[in-house]
């Protein structure tokens, strides 16, 4: 058995999601290799070589891989699969975009967003926004899987795998990168943060969203998230959305402020260790999953919470 894990990175640094997918790969068993596909991503390949339990790192570097678009990723990875039994991607937007193309070329069904490895061919994944979990047996000749990183512990560093070069595909391709708007922030990354504070429709405006959430996030060293309603209304950018169709987070502390707790939102945060909900409607469904529910107007609750956290030494 040999498993290929596709690294999540931005050409500059390796994302922790990679370490988590390596853990899933190790649970499947056999040799685990990591593919770093990018442009000028040598430093990333070196980082990947340090992940504990990795046999070797394949490093493909070139302009066609700069943004890891689906077609060049398919052109690169499908031929590599001659040497592997399973291909694992993190269930990030990059992974979700590319993985099914490779599965289709290999003529296999993909398993999307697994949360547990029961054995080398049996996996658990959520369906219906996490309201049901299915255990699936995958006996296909090759397996293509996207892994929900939050469901796995990160593999440690301390390994020293060799790094081999693989050729980047030449192209041309029928799709091309034009531009991007990437938010730069000093806060921890949402899906990897230990603490997350999220705001909902109750914020009422973008100004209010930032005014209420930022000081609290600063105090807690937290990332900021949002409900779909808050994103749709323009209070927060799209990459803040937590939920079935946004990001899945599982921090130690999740603070939901003015969020009702629709199942689609819960799908993205209900595996958090401790959930705090602030909502003025005591019937709000968010309270059913909250470990600490504060039935109060956030306008009074958040300042009080800030004071109490200060008193507690934060």
């Amino acid at each position: 058995m040999a498993v290929l894990v596709v690294a999540e990175h931005d050409n500059a640094s390796l994302k922790d999601a990679t370490h988590k997918v390596v853990t899933a790969a190790k649970a499947i068993g056999g040799d685990v290799d990591v593919l770093v596909a990018g442009e000028n991503a040598g430093a990333v390949a070196q980082e990947a070589a340090k992940i504990e339990g990795v046999r070797k790192v394949l490093h493909a570097d070139g302009a066609t891989l700069a943004k890891q678009l689906a077609e060049p990723m398919q052109a690169l990875i499908a031929p590599l699969m001659d040497s592997y039994d399973a291909l694992l991607f993190p269930a990030s937007t990059t992974g979700k975009n590319a993985a099914p193309r490779i599965a289709a070329q290999l003529d296999v069904m993909q398993l999307s967003g697994i949360i547990a490895v029961e054995s080398a061919d049996t996996f658990v994944r959520p369906i219906y926004a996490g309201n049901a979990l299915i255990t699936v047996k995958d006996e296909q000749a090759k397996k293509v899987i996207t892994v929900q990183p939050t469901a796995f512990k990160a593999a440690g560093d301390g390994g020293s795998a060799s790094v081999e070069t693989a050729a980047a595909p030449a192209g041309p391709f029928k799709s091309a990168f034009v531009s991007e708007e990437v938010a730069v922030s000093d806060r921890p990354e949402l899906t990897a943060a230990k603490r997350v504070v999220s705001g909902g429709r109750a914020m009422g405006s973008s100004d209010e969203f930032h005014k209420v959430l930022e000081p609290l996030a600063d105090k807690l060293g937290a990332a900021i998230g949002a409900s779909r309603a808050a994103v749709d209304a323009g209070y927060a950018p799209n990459d803040f959305q937590v939920g079935q169709t946004g990001k899945v987070v599982a921090p130690e502390l999740y603070v939901a402020i003015g969020i009702s707790g629709a199942i689609q939102h819960l799908a993205g945060m209900k595996d958090s260790k401790v959930i705090v909900a602030i909502n003025k409607d005591e019937e709000a469904p968010i309270f059913q999953v909250a470990d600490v529910g504060l039935v109060q107007d956030y306008k009074t609750a958040v300042p009080e919470l800030m004071d109490e956290l200060t008193k507690a030494g934060l």
Partner: peptide, 21 residues
């Protein structure tokens, strides 16, 4: 693929309310 089993996700022990910050 063969679905071996469909299960409810584990229930969270939520529902705890407090009065003050």
């Amino acid at each position: 693929l063969k679905v071996v089993k469909t299960a409810e996700p584990p229930k969270r022990q939520g529902g705890v309310k407090v009065k003050t910050a």
